[in-house]
């Protein structure tokens, strides 16, 4: 299998519990700030990065604004 490209960040290494928590969080649809941050740091260095609060707001607004998020 091919390793993920370096331009496609997975978050920095985390402990087992933290990874399990991240797994559950992403299944229920919580946006992952660590992934966003590491993406911005590795692909867009120097560009402004949203704070955790801004990121959460931006993601929530996107999540509930279009169909295709959930089903009947």
């Amino acid at each position: 299998m091919i390793q993920p490209a370096s331009g496609t960040p997975h978050a920095a290494p985390r402990s087992l519990v933290a990874s399990a928590a991240a797994f559950v969080r992403r299944i229920i649809g919580v946006p992952d700030y660590a992934i966003y941050r590491s993406h911005m740091e590795s692909c867009h260095p120097g560009e402004p990065v949203m704070t955790e609060r801004e990121f959460a707001n931006e993601r929530l607004a996107a999540r509930y604004s279009r169909p295709g998020q959930r089903c009947c």
Partner: peptide, 11 residues
Amino acid sequence: VRLADGRDYVP
């Protein structure tokens, strides 16, 4: 992968 932005497009 191509459009990864850490927001919508996340591998």
